[in-house]
Computed example of a mutant assay.
Amino acid sequence: MPPPPLTVLYKEVDSSKIHTDIYLPPLPSSPNGGAPKKYPVLINIHGGVFMLGHSRMVSMPQIDDCLSRNWIVVVPNHRLCPQVNILEGPITDCRDLLAWIYDGHLDAFLASDAAASHVHGSQYQTDMDRVMAFGTSSGGTLALSLGYNPPRPVAAILNFYGAVHFTHPFWTLPLPSMADTLPSFPPSFLAQIYAESPIPTDSSISLEGQTESGAATGPDFSRPRDAFALTQVANGTVLQACYPGRDVREIDPVCHVGKGFPPTFIVHGEADTKVPVEVSRMLYGRLREGGVRCGMVEVPGEDHTFAMGMQVGSRTWELQRKGFDFLEEVVGGGKG
């Protein structure tokens, strides 16, 4: 397990206070003459179908792996849909986090008394040329959004089974296997989600039912948010709920790949029932057509959100590490 993270507010909007967790790699055993060392930064964005999850619902073994590569890992929260749409909420928040890093606020926080009281933060500096993005599921979609339209994109992207290719018929089809397991909720109960104020930046579970502690648990259908989110997934109405009345191509990474898009690697389970592997194949093909440095691994036998349950050292673990190896090939590890 990685050490406990530092946590800092990176944005406040309409009374929503949005924080990010910061995990720091070990300091070198021999000090660099007291001068801070520059480190690559990986932005690690949680999944949760844009409506669920929070920053502690990410794979801690993956964070450990990244820290061993001498990367700083930044795990943000973002506002959750549907009270705000995907573009104006999660995407904007993640792009604002990226700007927060590029504008020097991460370095300023690490050098502050608040960080110094917990860790020797002044010994760390961001290598602004080596800021990367990674995410799982909806977090993968958000990581990809940091490759197009921000003033300064990230240097590389790792996308684990992200939702893409939104014009594919799958995104409007119900999932009978899921619908059969859900109760029927009164519309008035589901509508209570829109009354939450301020717009939340965390929920009690993620899509796969992971708690903050990592233990598996079922959704609590006494909570409108749990009921609403899983109902949209079951009915095939996630985009309708989270991007209503808008052209989904505006937020579809497949439609924004082109020359200058950052090097990108995709990891996807072959048996994924929530986001079919064929949409990632479409993205991979578009990356190759666009001349983007890229790669893709399809993990045999794995369904959606497998990253949260894989065992370190397993075949799945070793295959998914190829994505992090790709990032390291692009930006390298920490250096003085």
Results as ranks from 00 to 15, higher is better:
T136Y: 12
T136A: 14
A116S: 15
Y124F: 09
S117C: 11
P90T: 00
H118E: 06
A111Y: 03
C94V: 15
A111C: 00
V119H: 04
G104K: 05
G104H: 00
R95I: 07
Q125I: 08
I91V: 13
D93C: 03
T136C: 11
N85T: 05
N85F: 09
S137Y: 08
E88R: 07
S112C: 03
Q125S: 12
I91L: 01
A114C: 10
V119W: 00
D107G: 15
Q123D: 14
M128L: 15
Q123T: 10
T92S: 10
L87D: 08
P90E: 01
F134W: 12
I91T: 10
T92H: 04
D107I: 10
Y102V: 11
H120P: 08
H118A: 08
A115G: 03
L106G: 09
M128W: 09
A114S: 12
C94K: 10
D113M: 07
S122I: 01
Y102E: 09
I101M: 09
D93Q: 06
A108D: 15
D103T: 15
D103W: 11
I101D: 06
S117L: 13
D127V: 10
L110P: 00
T92A: 10
T92Q: 10
H120Y: 01
E88K: 04
Y124N: 07
V131L: 00
R95N: 05
D127F: 09
H105T: 10
L106S: 07
D103A: 11
S112L: 02
A116L: 11
G104T: 12
D107P: 13
T126Q: 09
V119N: 00
F134L: 13
Q123S: 15
